[in-house]
Lab assay of single mutants.
Amino acid sequence: WEITFERNGKRITVRTTDHRLLELFEKLWRNGADERELERLAEEINR
């Protein structure tokens, strides 16, 4: 799966075969987690 999240013109794409990681990322994104931390998390998930 691949999903791109966008907020205030900032886009972060997450790619993984584990839908649970996408759900976790989406919850953090929707709850306003720090964008720098989300970028780092996305990099780890995308590996």
Rank of each mutant, 00 (worst) to 15 (best):
V14P: 00
T17V: 08
E35S: 10
R7A: 12
L28F: 10
A42S: 04
G32S: 05
T4I: 11
N46S: 06
I3E: 05
L24A: 12
R36W: 15
L41Y: 07
E37K: 05
D34S: 14
R47W: 08
I3G: 04
L21Y: 08
I3C: 13
E43L: 05
E44Y: 14
E39F: 07
G9I: 00
R15M: 08
E37I: 11
R20Y: 11
I12C: 02
L38C: 01
R11G: 07
L22C: 03
K10P: 01
N31I: 07
G32D: 07
D34E: 08
I3Q: 12
F5E: 00
E2P: 02
R40N: 12
T17E: 10
T17H: 14
E35V: 12
I12G: 00
L21C: 06
W29G: 03
T4Y: 05
E37M: 11
R47N: 15
E35Y: 14
E35C: 07
K10E: 04
R47E: 12
A33R: 04
I3D: 01
D34F: 14
E39P: 00
D34H: 08
I45F: 04
E37G: 02
E23W: 08
E35D: 14
E2L: 06
L22N: 01
F5Q: 00
T4G: 02
E37D: 10
N31R: 05
E37R: 05
I3T: 08
E37A: 10
L24N: 06
E37V: 13
R36K: 15
E43G: 06
F25P: 00
F25N: 00
A33K: 04
E23D: 12
N8M: 04
T13H: 05
L38F: 04
R7Q: 06
A33G: 11
D34M: 14
R20Q: 12
E39K: 06
I45G: 01
N8L: 04
K27S: 12
N46M: 07
R15T: 11
R36S: 15
E23H: 12
R11K: 14
R30E: 14
N8R: 03
I3S: 07
F5A: 02
W29R: 03
G9A: 03
L21A: 14
L24M: 15
E43A: 09
E23F: 08
R20S: 13
E26L: 15
L38K: 00
D18C: 06
T16S: 11
E23R: 10
R30C: 08
T13S: 06
A42Y: 07
R7G: 04
W29P: 01
D18G: 03
R40Y: 09
L28N: 05
T16P: 02
E44M: 10
R7K: 13
E39L: 10
W1D: 08
L22I: 13
I45E: 02
L24K: 09
E44L: 13
E6V: 12
L24P: 01
I3P: 01
E6S: 07
D18M: 04
R30A: 12
G9S: 04
L41T: 03
T4P: 01
E6H: 07
W29S: 03
F5R: 04
R30K: 14
L22T: 02
W1L: 10
A42K: 02
W1Q: 08
E23L: 10
F5D: 00
T17S: 14
V14H: 00
E44S: 10
I12E: 01
N46D: 05
L21Q: 11
F25Q: 00
E26Y: 15
L21R: 05
L22F: 11
R40S: 12
L41D: 00
L38P: 00
T4S: 09
E2A: 03
G9L: 02
T4A: 06
L41S: 01
D18T: 04
T16Y: 05
L41E: 02
E43D: 14
H19L: 15
E2V: 09
E6P: 01
A33E: 08
E35Q: 07
T17N: 15
R30Y: 15
E44D: 10
T16G: 11
K10S: 11
G32L: 05
E37C: 10
A33D: 04
D34G: 09
L38T: 01
F5N: 00
E44I: 13
N46R: 04
F5H: 03
E26K: 09
E6I: 12
T4E: 06
I3Y: 14
E39N: 05
R30H: 11
R11V: 14
E26P: 00
I45L: 06
I12R: 00
H19S: 12
L38W: 06
N46W: 07
K10C: 04
L38V: 02
L41M: 11
G9Y: 01
L41A: 05
E39Q: 10
T4W: 04
E43N: 09
L28R: 09
L24G: 04
I12W: 14
E37H: 03
L24R: 10
R11N: 08
L28C: 07
F5G: 00
L41P: 00
K10W: 12
R20A: 14
T17M: 12
T17R: 14
R47S: 15
V14N: 00
G9M: 02
H19T: 11
L38A: 01
V14M: 04
R40D: 11
E44R: 10
G32Y: 07
E35F: 15
R20E: 11
I3A: 10
T13M: 05
H19M: 14
W29A: 04
L21N: 05
W29F: 11
F25D: 00
T17F: 13
R7D: 02
E23T: 10
E43P: 00
H19K: 15
I45M: 07
L21V: 09
L38Q: 01
K10V: 13
R47L: 14
T4C: 06
T4K: 03
V14R: 00
T13R: 06
L22R: 05
I45V: 04
L41F: 13
T13Q: 05
L22W: 06
R47M: 14
G9Q: 03
L24H: 12
N8S: 05
A42F: 06
E35K: 03
R40T: 12
G9V: 00
W29M: 09
E26A: 09
W1C: 10
E43C: 03
E37T: 14
T17C: 11
F5T: 01
N46V: 06
R20I: 11
L28E: 10
E44V: 09
W1H: 11
R20W: 09
E39G: 03
T16M: 03
W29H: 04
W1Y: 13
L38N: 00
L28V: 09
L24S: 07
D34C: 03
T4R: 03
I12K: 00
N8E: 09
R47H: 13
R30G: 07
T13Y: 05
H19Q: 14
N46P: 01
I12L: 07
N31E: 15
W29D: 02
